[in-house]
Write a protein that binds this DNA or RNA. Sequence first.
DNA 1: CGCTGACTTGACCAGTGTCAATAAAGGTGG
DNA 2: CCACCTTTATTGACACTGGTCAAGTCAGCG
Lengths: 217, 217
Amino acid sequence: MSPDELWELNSAARHKTYPAGQTIVTQGEPNVLANIVTGIVVEKKGLADGREQIVSLLFPSDFLGNAYRRDADATAQTVSPVTLCTFERSGFEDVVRSHSAFRQALFDHAVAELDQAREWMLLLGQMRAGERVATFLMRLARRQSDAGCSHMPRDVVSDGAMLRIPITRGQMAAFLGLTVETVSRKLGALRDAGVIDLLGPRTVRINNVERLLAESL
Amino acid sequence: MSPDELWELNSAARHKTYPAGQTIVTQGEPNVLANIVTGIVVEKKGLADGREQIVSLLFPSDFLGNAYRRDADATAQTVSPVTLCTFERSGFEDVVRSHSAFRQALFDHAVAELDQAREWMLLLGQMRAGERVATFLMRLARRQSDAGCSHMPRDVVSDGAMLRIPITRGQMAAFLGLTVETVSRKLGALRDAGVIDLLGPRTVRINNVERLLAESL
DNA sequence: CGCTGACTTGACCAGTGTCAATAAAGGTGG
DNA sequence: CCACCTTTATTGACACTGGTCAAGTCAGCG
Protein backbone atom coordinates (compact mmCIF):
# COMPACT_ATOMS: atom_id res chain seq x y z
CA MET A 1 0.00 0.00 0.00
CA SER A 2 1.13 3.50 -0.76
CA PRO A 3 2.02 5.96 2.01
CA ASP A 4 -1.04 8.12 1.50
CA GLU A 5 -3.29 5.10 1.66
CA LEU A 6 -1.71 4.06 4.90
CA TRP A 7 -2.06 7.56 6.23
CA GLU A 8 -5.71 7.74 5.31
CA LEU A 9 -6.29 4.43 7.05
CA ASN A 10 -4.27 5.51 10.01
CA SER A 11 -6.46 8.53 10.59
CA ALA A 12 -9.33 6.10 11.21
CA ALA A 13 -7.27 3.97 13.60
CA ARG A 14 -7.10 3.99 17.36
CA HIS A 15 -5.10 1.78 19.67
CA LYS A 16 -6.84 -0.11 22.41
CA THR A 17 -5.64 -2.57 25.05
CA TYR A 18 -7.39 -5.45 26.73
CA PRO A 19 -6.36 -7.61 29.70
CA ALA A 20 -6.06 -11.38 29.33
CA GLY A 21 -9.29 -13.32 29.16
CA GLN A 22 -11.41 -10.37 28.10
CA THR A 23 -14.21 -10.67 25.56
CA ILE A 24 -13.72 -8.20 22.71
CA VAL A 25 -16.89 -8.88 20.75
CA THR A 26 -19.75 -11.27 21.36
CA GLN A 27 -21.26 -13.48 18.68
CA GLY A 28 -24.15 -11.68 17.01
CA GLU A 29 -23.25 -8.23 18.28
CA PRO A 30 -21.71 -5.43 16.23
CA ASN A 31 -18.31 -6.31 14.93
CA VAL A 32 -14.92 -4.75 15.49
CA LEU A 33 -12.45 -4.01 12.72
CA ALA A 34 -8.90 -4.24 13.99
CA ASN A 35 -5.40 -5.46 13.49
CA ILE A 36 -3.79 -7.31 16.34
CA VAL A 37 -0.64 -5.52 17.40
CA THR A 38 0.40 -7.68 20.33
CA GLY A 39 -1.10 -10.70 22.09
CA ILE A 40 -3.23 -13.67 21.08
CA VAL A 41 -6.95 -13.70 20.33
CA VAL A 42 -9.30 -16.66 19.82
CA GLU A 43 -12.61 -16.66 17.99
CA LYS A 44 -15.13 -19.19 19.26
CA LYS A 45 -18.65 -20.36 18.68
CA GLY A 46 -20.83 -21.80 21.41
CA LEU A 47 -23.74 -24.19 21.87
CA ALA A 48 -26.69 -23.46 24.15
CA ASP A 49 -25.39 -25.79 26.87
CA GLY A 50 -21.99 -24.15 27.09
CA ARG A 51 -19.87 -26.32 24.84
CA GLU A 52 -17.51 -24.16 22.82
CA GLN A 53 -15.51 -24.60 19.65
CA ILE A 54 -12.59 -22.33 18.89
CA VAL A 55 -12.77 -21.54 15.18
CA SER A 56 -9.70 -19.38 14.80
CA LEU A 57 -6.48 -18.56 16.58
CA LEU A 58 -5.18 -15.07 15.82
CA PHE A 59 -1.63 -13.77 16.19
CA PRO A 60 -0.08 -10.32 15.99
CA SER A 61 -0.51 -8.86 12.48
CA ASP A 62 -3.69 -10.87 11.92
CA PHE A 63 -6.87 -9.02 11.06
CA LEU A 64 -9.94 -9.36 13.25
CA GLY A 65 -13.49 -8.77 12.08
CA ASN A 66 -15.25 -8.80 8.78
CA ALA A 67 -15.54 -5.56 6.85
CA TYR A 68 -18.58 -6.76 4.93
CA ARG A 69 -20.68 -7.96 7.80
CA ARG A 70 -22.04 -5.78 10.52
CA ASP A 71 -22.36 -8.43 13.21
CA ALA A 72 -19.75 -10.91 14.35
CA ASP A 73 -20.31 -14.57 13.59
CA ALA A 74 -18.17 -15.62 16.54
CA THR A 75 -17.08 -14.37 19.94
CA ALA A 76 -13.57 -12.93 20.06
CA GLN A 77 -11.69 -13.23 23.33
CA THR A 78 -8.19 -12.31 24.40
CA VAL A 79 -5.89 -15.08 25.58
CA SER A 80 -3.07 -12.84 26.76
CA PRO A 81 -3.01 -9.08 27.24
CA VAL A 82 -3.76 -7.67 23.80
CA THR A 83 -3.19 -4.42 21.94
CA LEU A 84 -5.51 -3.79 19.02
CA CYS A 85 -5.32 -1.21 16.30
CA THR A 86 -9.04 -0.62 15.77
CA PHE A 87 -10.63 1.20 12.85
CA GLU A 88 -13.75 3.32 12.78
CA ARG A 89 -16.14 1.53 10.52
CA SER A 90 -17.03 4.59 8.47
CA GLY A 91 -13.46 5.68 7.82
CA PHE A 92 -12.45 2.12 7.12
CA GLU A 93 -15.19 1.70 4.57
CA ASP A 94 -14.13 4.86 2.79
CA VAL A 95 -10.64 3.47 2.40
CA VAL A 96 -11.99 0.15 1.22
CA ARG A 97 -14.23 1.80 -1.33
CA SER A 98 -11.57 3.98 -2.82
CA HIS A 99 -8.56 1.67 -2.84
CA SER A 100 -8.83 -1.49 -4.85
CA ALA A 101 -5.52 -2.86 -3.55
CA PHE A 102 -6.85 -2.68 -0.05
CA ARG A 103 -10.11 -4.27 -1.08
CA GLN A 104 -8.13 -7.02 -2.70
CA ALA A 105 -6.15 -7.58 0.48
CA LEU A 106 -9.35 -7.92 2.46
CA PHE A 107 -10.70 -10.40 -0.01
CA ASP A 108 -7.53 -12.45 0.10
CA HIS A 109 -7.83 -12.48 3.84
CA ALA A 110 -11.39 -13.81 3.71
CA VAL A 111 -10.38 -16.51 1.24
CA ALA A 112 -7.46 -17.57 3.39
CA GLU A 113 -9.73 -17.82 6.41
CA LEU A 114 -12.15 -19.99 4.49
CA ASP A 115 -9.33 -22.25 3.45
CA GLN A 116 -8.13 -22.58 7.03
CA ALA A 117 -11.62 -23.30 8.28
CA ARG A 118 -12.05 -26.11 5.75
CA GLU A 119 -8.67 -27.54 6.61
CA TRP A 120 -9.82 -27.59 10.21
CA MET A 121 -13.07 -29.31 9.21
CA LEU A 122 -10.93 -32.10 7.83
CA LEU A 123 -9.05 -32.31 11.11
CA LEU A 124 -12.21 -32.26 13.25
CA GLY A 125 -14.17 -34.66 11.10
CA GLN A 126 -11.58 -37.27 10.20
CA MET A 127 -8.50 -37.23 12.41
CA ARG A 128 -8.04 -39.16 15.63
CA ALA A 129 -6.91 -37.45 18.82
CA GLY A 130 -3.18 -38.13 18.39
CA GLU A 131 -3.20 -36.88 14.82
CA ARG A 132 -5.00 -33.70 15.83
CA VAL A 133 -2.48 -32.85 18.53
CA ALA A 134 0.48 -33.58 16.25
CA THR A 135 -1.06 -31.49 13.46
CA PHE A 136 -1.66 -28.61 15.84
CA LEU A 137 1.97 -28.63 16.93
CA MET A 138 3.24 -28.76 13.34
CA ARG A 139 1.05 -25.87 12.20
CA LEU A 140 2.07 -23.81 15.20
CA ALA A 141 5.73 -24.55 14.51
CA ARG A 142 5.38 -23.53 10.87
CA ARG A 143 3.61 -20.36 11.80
CA GLN A 144 6.29 -19.41 14.31
CA SER A 145 9.18 -20.21 12.00
CA ASP A 146 7.52 -18.04 9.35
CA ALA A 147 7.11 -15.10 11.66
CA GLY A 148 10.55 -15.43 13.18
CA CYS A 149 12.71 -15.18 10.11
CA SER A 150 11.04 -14.28 6.87
CA HIS A 151 14.23 -14.83 4.88
CA MET A 152 14.02 -18.57 5.54
CA PRO A 153 12.09 -20.79 3.15
CA ARG A 154 8.50 -21.00 4.33
CA ASP A 155 7.08 -23.89 6.29
CA VAL A 156 10.40 -25.37 7.28
CA VAL A 157 10.70 -26.70 10.80
CA SER A 158 13.96 -28.31 11.83
CA ASP A 159 14.76 -30.81 14.56
CA GLY A 160 15.36 -29.18 17.91
CA ALA A 161 13.01 -26.28 17.18
CA MET A 162 11.56 -24.66 20.26
CA LEU A 163 7.86 -24.02 20.31
CA ARG A 164 5.82 -21.71 22.52
CA ILE A 165 2.22 -22.84 22.91
CA PRO A 166 0.26 -19.61 23.30
CA ILE A 167 -2.90 -21.14 24.76
CA THR A 168 -3.94 -23.34 27.68
CA ARG A 169 -4.71 -27.04 27.38
CA GLY A 170 -8.36 -26.18 27.75
CA GLN A 171 -8.20 -23.89 24.74
CA MET A 172 -6.26 -26.48 22.77
CA ALA A 173 -9.02 -28.93 23.59
CA ALA A 174 -11.70 -26.49 22.45
CA PHE A 175 -9.79 -25.92 19.22
CA LEU A 176 -9.16 -29.60 18.50
CA GLY A 177 -12.58 -30.88 19.50
CA LEU A 178 -11.17 -32.95 22.38
CA THR A 179 -11.10 -32.83 26.17
CA VAL A 180 -8.32 -31.36 28.27
CA GLU A 181 -7.40 -34.82 29.52
CA THR A 182 -7.03 -36.29 26.05
CA VAL A 183 -4.84 -33.41 24.90
CA SER A 184 -2.63 -33.88 27.93
CA ARG A 185 -2.39 -37.64 27.35
CA LYS A 186 -1.52 -37.35 23.68
CA LEU A 187 1.17 -34.79 24.43
CA GLY A 188 2.49 -37.18 27.08
CA ALA A 189 2.50 -39.99 24.53
CA LEU A 190 4.56 -37.90 22.10
CA ARG A 191 6.96 -37.12 24.94
CA ASP A 192 7.23 -40.80 25.94
CA ALA A 193 7.91 -41.68 22.30
CA GLY A 194 10.76 -39.17 22.28
CA VAL A 195 9.21 -37.12 19.50
CA ILE A 196 8.98 -33.98 21.65
CA ASP A 197 10.16 -32.71 25.03
CA LEU A 198 7.81 -30.87 27.33
CA LEU A 199 10.02 -28.25 28.96
CA GLY A 200 7.04 -26.64 30.62
CA PRO A 201 3.31 -26.76 30.03
CA ARG A 202 3.66 -24.05 27.41
CA THR A 203 7.07 -24.85 25.97
CA VAL A 204 7.89 -27.72 23.64
CA ARG A 205 11.04 -28.82 21.89
CA ILE A 206 10.53 -30.84 18.71
CA ASN A 207 13.14 -33.60 18.64
CA ASN A 208 11.99 -35.35 15.51
CA VAL A 209 10.06 -33.35 12.96
CA GLU A 210 9.75 -36.28 10.61
CA ARG A 211 8.05 -38.48 13.16
CA LEU A 212 5.81 -35.65 14.31
CA LEU A 213 4.79 -35.12 10.70
CA ALA A 214 4.12 -38.83 10.36
CA GLU A 215 1.88 -38.79 13.45
CA SER A 216 -0.08 -35.89 12.00
CA LEU A 217 -0.70 -37.86 8.79
CA MET B 1 -27.82 -6.79 -11.61
CA SER B 2 -28.73 -4.74 -14.63
CA PRO B 3 -29.60 -6.38 -17.97
CA ASP B 4 -26.41 -5.27 -19.71
CA GLU B 5 -24.31 -6.64 -16.86
CA LEU B 6 -26.04 -9.95 -17.13
CA TRP B 7 -25.55 -9.95 -20.85
CA GLU B 8 -21.88 -9.22 -20.55
CA LEU B 9 -21.50 -12.05 -18.09
CA ASN B 10 -23.55 -14.32 -20.25
CA SER B 11 -21.22 -13.88 -23.18
CA ALA B 12 -18.52 -15.48 -21.07
CA ALA B 13 -20.76 -18.35 -20.03
CA ARG B 14 -21.07 -21.85 -21.40
CA HIS B 15 -23.26 -24.68 -20.26
CA LYS B 16 -21.73 -28.01 -19.44
CA THR B 17 -23.13 -31.29 -18.17
CA TYR B 18 -21.61 -34.00 -16.02
CA PRO B 19 -22.85 -37.48 -15.15
CA ALA B 20 -23.35 -38.51 -11.52
CA GLY B 21 -20.22 -39.23 -9.54
CA GLN B 22 -17.91 -37.27 -11.81
CA THR B 23 -15.04 -35.17 -10.49
CA ILE B 24 -15.30 -31.60 -11.76
CA VAL B 25 -12.09 -30.20 -10.29
CA THR B 26 -9.39 -31.79 -8.19
CA GLN B 27 -7.90 -30.19 -5.09
CA GLY B 28 -4.86 -28.15 -6.07
CA GLU B 29 -5.62 -28.03 -9.77
CA PRO B 30 -6.93 -25.03 -11.70
CA ASN B 31 -10.32 -23.93 -10.53
CA VAL B 32 -13.63 -23.71 -12.30
CA LEU B 33 -15.97 -20.74 -12.06
CA ALA B 34 -19.57 -21.79 -12.44
CA ASN B 35 -23.11 -21.59 -11.25
CA ILE B 36 -24.93 -24.81 -10.61
CA VAL B 37 -28.02 -24.99 -12.80
CA THR B 38 -29.28 -28.44 -11.88
CA GLY B 39 -28.00 -31.25 -9.68
CA ILE B 40 -26.00 -31.52 -6.46
CA VAL B 41 -22.26 -31.03 -6.02
CA VAL B 42 -20.06 -31.76 -3.01
CA GLU B 43 -16.69 -30.26 -2.21
CA LYS B 44 -14.36 -32.48 -0.23
CA LYS B 45 -10.89 -32.57 1.20
CA GLY B 46 -8.89 -35.74 1.62
CA LEU B 47 -6.14 -37.21 3.78
CA ALA B 48 -3.24 -39.20 2.36
CA ASP B 49 -4.75 -42.53 3.47
CA GLY B 50 -8.06 -41.94 1.74
CA ARG B 51 -10.22 -40.54 4.52
CA GLU B 52 -12.38 -37.74 3.16
CA GLN B 53 -14.30 -34.86 4.66
CA ILE B 54 -17.05 -33.15 2.72
CA VAL B 55 -16.69 -29.42 3.37
CA SER B 56 -19.61 -28.11 1.39
CA LEU B 57 -22.85 -29.29 -0.15
CA LEU B 58 -23.93 -27.24 -3.17
CA PHE B 59 -27.41 -26.92 -4.64
CA PRO B 60 -28.77 -25.39 -7.83
CA SER B 61 -28.13 -21.62 -7.89
CA ASP B 62 -25.04 -22.00 -5.69
CA PHE B 63 -21.76 -20.71 -6.98
CA LEU B 64 -18.78 -23.03 -7.36
CA GLY B 65 -15.17 -21.92 -7.35
CA ASN B 66 -13.28 -18.95 -6.07
CA ALA B 67 -12.76 -16.01 -8.36
CA TYR B 68 -9.71 -14.82 -6.45
CA ARG B 69 -7.78 -18.05 -6.29
CA ARG B 70 -6.41 -19.86 -9.27
CA ASP B 71 -6.33 -23.34 -7.77
CA ALA B 72 -9.10 -25.15 -5.97
CA ASP B 73 -8.72 -25.81 -2.25
CA ALA B 74 -11.03 -28.82 -2.44
CA THR B 75 -12.17 -31.46 -4.88
CA ALA B 76 -15.61 -30.86 -6.40
CA GLN B 77 -17.62 -33.91 -7.39
CA THR B 78 -21.10 -34.38 -8.76
CA VAL B 79 -23.58 -36.36 -6.72
CA SER B 80 -26.32 -36.50 -9.33
CA PRO B 81 -26.19 -35.56 -12.99
CA VAL B 82 -25.25 -31.88 -13.02
CA THR B 83 -25.57 -28.93 -15.37
CA LEU B 84 -23.10 -26.16 -14.82
CA CYS B 85 -23.07 -22.66 -16.22
CA THR B 86 -19.32 -22.14 -16.44
CA PHE B 87 -17.52 -18.85 -17.00
CA GLU B 88 -14.29 -18.17 -18.84
CA ARG B 89 -11.91 -16.86 -16.26
CA SER B 90 -10.80 -13.88 -18.33
CA GLY B 91 -14.29 -12.71 -19.23
CA PHE B 92 -15.45 -13.30 -15.69
CA GLU B 93 -12.65 -11.22 -14.27
CA ASP B 94 -13.51 -8.35 -16.60
CA VAL B 95 -17.04 -8.34 -15.29
CA VAL B 96 -15.82 -8.51 -11.71
CA ARG B 97 -13.41 -5.66 -12.23
CA SER B 98 -15.91 -3.34 -13.83
CA HIS B 99 -19.04 -4.01 -11.76
CA SER B 100 -18.85 -3.29 -8.08
CA ALA B 101 -22.25 -4.84 -7.39
CA PHE B 102 -21.04 -8.10 -8.82
CA ARG B 103 -17.83 -7.90 -6.84
CA GLN B 104 -19.89 -7.28 -3.75
CA ALA B 105 -22.00 -10.34 -4.47
CA LEU B 106 -18.89 -12.47 -4.77
CA PHE B 107 -17.58 -11.15 -1.51
CA ASP B 108 -20.86 -11.83 0.25
CA HIS B 109 -20.70 -15.34 -1.08
CA ALA B 110 -17.22 -15.89 0.34
CA VAL B 111 -18.25 -14.51 3.71
CA ALA B 112 -21.31 -16.74 3.81
CA GLU B 113 -19.18 -19.78 3.00
CA LEU B 114 -16.81 -18.91 5.82
CA ASP B 115 -19.71 -18.59 8.20
CA GLN B 116 -21.06 -21.97 7.14
CA ALA B 117 -17.65 -23.59 7.48
CA ARG B 118 -17.31 -22.30 11.04
CA GLU B 119 -20.79 -23.42 11.92
CA TRP B 120 -19.78 -26.86 10.70
CA MET B 121 -16.59 -26.74 12.78
CA LEU B 122 -18.84 -26.34 15.81
CA LEU B 123 -20.83 -29.38 14.73
CA LEU B 124 -17.78 -31.52 14.02
CA GLY B 125 -15.86 -30.49 17.10
CA GLN B 126 -18.57 -30.48 19.77
CA MET B 127 -21.72 -32.34 18.80
CA ARG B 128 -22.42 -36.01 19.41
CA ALA B 129 -23.55 -38.29 16.61
CA GLY B 130 -27.28 -37.93 17.24
CA GLU B 131 -27.07 -34.17 17.41
CA ARG B 132 -25.13 -34.05 14.15
CA VAL B 133 -27.69 -36.11 12.26
CA ALA B 134 -30.60 -34.10 13.66
CA THR B 135 -28.85 -30.84 12.80
CA PHE B 136 -28.19 -32.03 9.28
CA LEU B 137 -31.85 -32.84 8.76
CA MET B 138 -32.97 -29.50 10.13
CA ARG B 139 -30.60 -27.51 7.96
CA LEU B 140 -31.62 -29.49 4.91
CA ALA B 141 -35.28 -28.91 5.70
CA ARG B 142 -34.75 -25.17 6.12
CA ARG B 143 -32.84 -24.98 2.89
CA GLN B 144 -35.55 -26.81 0.98
CA SER B 145 -38.40 -24.81 2.47
CA ASP B 146 -36.49 -21.65 1.50
CA ALA B 147 -36.01 -22.73 -2.06
CA GLY B 148 -39.51 -24.08 -2.43
CA CYS B 149 -41.51 -20.99 -1.68
CA SER B 150 -39.66 -17.76 -1.22
CA HIS B 151 -42.81 -15.95 -0.16
CA MET B 152 -42.87 -17.91 3.08
CA PRO B 153 -41.00 -16.61 6.11
CA ARG B 154 -37.47 -18.01 6.02
CA ASP B 155 -36.29 -20.95 8.06
CA VAL B 156 -39.71 -22.21 8.94
CA VAL B 157 -40.22 -25.95 8.89
CA SER B 158 -43.58 -27.32 9.90
CA ASP B 159 -44.63 -30.74 11.17
CA GLY B 160 -45.26 -33.24 8.41
CA ALA B 161 -42.74 -31.62 6.08
CA MET B 162 -41.32 -33.97 3.49
CA LEU B 163 -37.61 -34.01 3.01
CA ARG B 164 -35.54 -35.35 0.14
CA ILE B 165 -32.00 -36.29 1.16
CA PRO B 166 -29.89 -35.58 -1.91
CA ILE B 167 -26.86 -37.65 -0.90
CA THR B 168 -26.06 -41.21 0.11
CA ARG B 169 -25.48 -42.33 3.68
CA GLY B 170 -21.81 -42.56 2.90
CA GLN B 171 -21.74 -38.92 1.86
CA MET B 172 -23.74 -37.92 4.92
CA ALA B 173 -21.15 -39.74 7.01
CA ALA B 174 -18.29 -37.94 5.25
CA PHE B 175 -20.05 -34.64 5.83
CA LEU B 176 -20.87 -35.28 9.50
CA GLY B 177 -17.55 -36.85 10.46
CA LEU B 178 -19.18 -40.20 11.26
CA THR B 179 -19.38 -43.67 9.74
CA VAL B 180 -22.17 -44.94 7.52
CA GLU B 181 -23.31 -47.31 10.24
CA THR B 182 -23.63 -44.60 12.86
CA VAL B 183 -25.61 -42.35 10.52
CA SER B 184 -27.96 -45.21 9.77
CA ARG B 185 -28.37 -46.05 13.46
CA LYS B 186 -29.08 -42.48 14.51
CA LEU B 187 -31.66 -42.09 11.76
CA GLY B 188 -33.18 -45.33 12.96
CA ALA B 189 -33.25 -44.00 16.51
CA LEU B 190 -35.11 -40.87 15.38
CA ARG B 191 -37.58 -43.09 13.52
CA ASP B 192 -38.07 -45.35 16.56
CA ALA B 193 -38.66 -42.27 18.70
CA GLY B 194 -41.37 -41.18 16.27
CA VAL B 195 -39.62 -37.92 15.44
CA ILE B 196 -39.32 -38.78 11.75
CA ASP B 197 -40.55 -41.41 9.29
CA LEU B 198 -38.19 -43.03 6.80
CA LEU B 199 -40.33 -43.44 3.71
CA GLY B 200 -37.33 -44.61 1.71
CA PRO B 201 -33.61 -44.30 2.17
CA ARG B 202 -33.70 -40.85 0.61
CA THR B 203 -37.08 -39.60 1.75
CA VAL B 204 -37.96 -38.43 5.24
CA ARG B 205 -41.09 -37.02 6.80
CA ILE B 206 -40.57 -34.84 9.85
CA ASN B 207 -43.31 -35.63 12.33
CA ASN B 208 -42.16 -33.44 15.15
CA VAL B 209 -40.03 -30.43 14.29
CA GLU B 210 -39.82 -29.34 17.90
CA ARG B 211 -38.30 -32.60 19.08
CA LEU B 212 -35.96 -32.76 16.11
CA LEU B 213 -34.80 -29.27 16.97
CA ALA B 214 -34.31 -30.35 20.58
CA GLU B 215 -32.20 -33.32 19.49
CA SER B 216 -30.03 -31.03 17.40
CA LEU B 217 -29.40 -28.76 20.42
C1' DC C 1 -36.27 -60.92 -12.66
C1' DG C 2 -31.87 -61.00 -11.00
C1' DC C 3 -27.79 -58.13 -9.95
C1' DT C 4 -25.32 -54.66 -7.79
C1' DG C 5 -24.63 -51.11 -4.81
C1' DA C 6 -26.79 -48.87 -0.90
C1' DC C 7 -28.70 -49.43 3.46
C1' DT C 8 -29.71 -51.61 7.99
C1' DT C 9 -28.79 -54.27 11.94
C1' DG C 10 -26.08 -56.92 15.33
C1' DA C 11 -22.01 -58.13 18.13
C1' DC C 12 -17.88 -56.61 19.73
C1' DC C 13 -14.17 -53.58 20.96
C1' DA C 14 -11.09 -49.46 20.92
C1' DG C 15 -10.61 -44.77 21.60
C1' DT C 16 -12.27 -40.85 24.15
C1' DG C 17 -14.94 -38.81 27.49
C1' DT C 18 -16.04 -38.63 32.45
C1' DC C 19 -14.96 -38.46 37.21
C1' DA C 20 -11.58 -38.01 40.71
C1' DA C 21 -7.25 -37.26 42.89
C1' DT C 22 -2.65 -35.16 42.60
C1' DA C 23 0.91 -32.37 41.10
C1' DA C 24 2.82 -28.47 39.12
C1' DA C 25 2.75 -23.49 37.72
C1' DG C 26 1.87 -18.89 38.24
C1' DG C 27 0.34 -14.84 40.71
C1' DT C 28 -0.25 -12.13 45.04
C1' DG C 29 0.71 -10.14 49.18
C1' DG C 30 3.41 -10.23 53.19
C1' DC D 1 12.19 -13.48 48.38
C1' DC D 2 9.19 -16.65 50.11
C1' DA D 3 4.69 -18.75 51.45
C1' DC D 4 0.18 -19.25 50.16
C1' DC D 5 -3.55 -19.75 47.08
C1' DT D 6 -5.67 -20.40 42.65
C1' DT D 7 -5.50 -21.99 38.29
C1' DT D 8 -3.73 -25.21 35.15
C1' DA D 9 -1.93 -29.62 33.99
C1' DT D 10 -1.13 -34.56 34.63
C1' DT D 11 -2.40 -39.14 35.65
C1' DG D 12 -5.43 -43.11 36.81
C1' DA D 13 -9.72 -45.92 36.79
C1' DC D 14 -13.81 -46.65 34.52
C1' DA D 15 -17.88 -46.05 31.39
C1' DC D 16 -19.82 -45.33 27.06
C1' DT D 17 -20.11 -43.53 22.50
C1' DG D 18 -19.14 -44.56 18.14
C1' DG D 19 -15.98 -47.33 15.09
C1' DT D 20 -15.04 -51.96 13.15
C1' DC D 21 -16.27 -56.28 11.26
C1' DA D 22 -19.75 -59.19 9.50
C1' DA D 23 -24.29 -60.64 7.93
C1' DG D 24 -28.21 -59.77 5.95
C1' DT D 25 -31.94 -56.79 3.60
C1' DC D 26 -33.60 -53.58 0.45
C1' DA D 27 -34.01 -50.63 -3.64
C1' DG D 28 -33.16 -49.24 -8.08
C1' DC D 29 -31.90 -50.53 -12.69
C1' DG D 30 -30.60 -53.03 -16.64
